[in-house]
Structures are given as structure tokens and as C-alpha cells.
Amino acid sequence: MLAGRCLKRMLKLDNISKVYKVGTFGGKELHAVSDVSFDVKDGEVVSLIGESGSGKTTIGKMILRLISTSSGAISFNGVDISTLKRGALKEYYRNVQGVFQDPFSSYNPIFKADRVFRIIREEFFPEIKSREWNTKVESTLEAVGLNPGDVLNKFPHQLSGGQLQRFLIARALLLDIQFLVADEIISMLDASTRVDVLNLLADLKSRGLSILFITHDLSLGYYISEKAVVLYRGCVVEMGSTERIYDNPLHPYTKMLMASVPRLDKKWEEVEVELKAKQSELTSGCVYYERCPVADKDEGCDRYRPTLLEAESDHFVACSRYTEGE
């Protein structure tokens, strides 16, 4: 165990795709995720940014092995996770856990909320004594900023969304995980508790936890992460260091997203963006072609899918208007 800890651990996504068969007889294909590659290093927070339907949750679920990949491979510490079975899979879940958007639907309303901790104990730590376990639960709850006396022995409806969400993070922490998939965990919370959960993630990060932070809120992504991946209809359109992307968004889609973020220091510019995303088939051209204000037929935007290129150091973009090193 200790020797493994010293190695550089890493989650790596290698050209993963997810294709769903849709239509009456499964004749049509829906590409939810196409050829996505990126990696999350030790103690790194990576934001996965995109609108609804961009495939960001699908990627999170594939990492958690809740759904299978259609092609490509996800590896954790060099091991392909699709090959994991039984004991090895359990060991994987000991290291990798997820927390999801809606804290209220993550609990069974019939049971008390702290049942999630009991299940963890039954599954992963049957050898630990009750008293020892209870102290562990209490110290973990304190670590996520909850007062154990206030929150234990309560039903889900007696707790607030922020408390339930922190419960779920505490549950993940009990396992001493290395990687957390945080899927829109802030969006259901109130502004005053939002920052507390964000700061909690930041603290965990400084303790060496790697986080995939899935969000549609760009300001939250900027606050917490050093790397950002922007998705549009299942494709990575831009990725790189958060500062570079935010200060200098290159892809027209990222620019549009930046322009739409409601900010407290600037009003929306009078950029009228055509938001009718036509639900057409995925063509061979750039995925953003129909909504792109600067699409150019001569550049072949409608015919060729641009590949992800490094526009400046540590800043990638998939747009035919940019070529390597420009």
C-alpha cells in the first residue's frame, strides 16, 4: 500500500467514446462522447465544462464505471479500469468515488441519512470496532465542517441540501479516496453554503486528492481548478490551463460561453448569439459549425473535424482557425 502511494498516480482517458443506439430499431447512433482524451494528475483539480447534453456527466459515469465505454480506455494508475473484476473493482472504488448533483435523491428517504456510513463500514471495513468507527465518522464529519451531534441520527428531509452534500463528501473521505468525481455538486446549493463546499474541495486537494470537477458554471471552475476541459456535444473543443483559457479563449464556443456568464463586474455585451442548436445528425464537420459565428466554408469547417492542437504552450484548441504554434 505504502509503496503504491509513492508512485505518481494518475487517471488517464484515452480516446474514449460513448455511442448510444437510438430510434425505433436502434438504427441511429447518438454520439454522446467522441474521442475524448485528457488526464488528471496527482492532487490536480480538472474542470469539465459544458452545457447540458455536452456529455460531461457521461464522462463522469464512465470513470466511475456506472456505464461502459464504447471505445477507448480509461486507466487509473496505469491499470485499464474496464478489466477490473470483483476484488480489484472493489479496490478501485476504495480509491475512486463520485458525488452527484442532487443530494436529496442520493438518499433513501425511508432510512436515516447516516446509513450511508454504515454501508461503507459493512462493505469495506468490517474489521473495525464500533467505537473506533464512530470516532472516525465523527472526525470525518468535522473535517467537512459539520457538527456530528447536529446531523447524525436524522432523516434526509431533516437536513439541508448543503449538509446532505457534505455527508456524501464525508462518505467518500471515509474511504480515504484518491480521486473524486464531483458532478455539479454545487449547483443545488445556496450561495452562502456554496463557497464552503468549494473551499472544502480546495482543502482536500491540498491534502493530495485529485478531483474531476464537472460544472456548467465557469466562475466556479476558475475558482478551484488549474486545468479546464471545454466540451461541446461530446467533443473537446478547448483545453489547457484555466488561466490561459479564461484570459484568452480561442474557440468560438468557449468565447460564447464566456460572454454568457452572468458576472457581477460586467454586463452582458450586446453579442447576440444564435442559440437555436439545430438537432441535426453529427456530421463530419466541426461540431460547433451550425452555431459558430465565424465558421468559414473555405476553411472546411463544414467538412473536416478539427483536431485538438496546442495553440500556445499548455493551451489546446480544436478550431481550424488556429494552427499549431500560432
Binding site: 453554503t193 456554496r194 473551499n199 479564461y246 464566456m258 463586474d265
Partner: peptide
Amino acid sequence: KLLISSLPEIGVKYAEKRLTGIPGS
């Protein structure tokens, strides 16, 4: 005042400026 100051904006990173929520509920 507390509510406005707890909102993350673009251009604010936790490492540079750590926002605080409102303690209590």
C-alpha cells in the same frame, strides 16, 4: 454584504483570494 462577497467571480482563484461563506445556517 456577506452574500455578495461570497459569490465567486471569474478571475478569482481560491489560492489568491479565499472567499468565505456565511457561518451558521
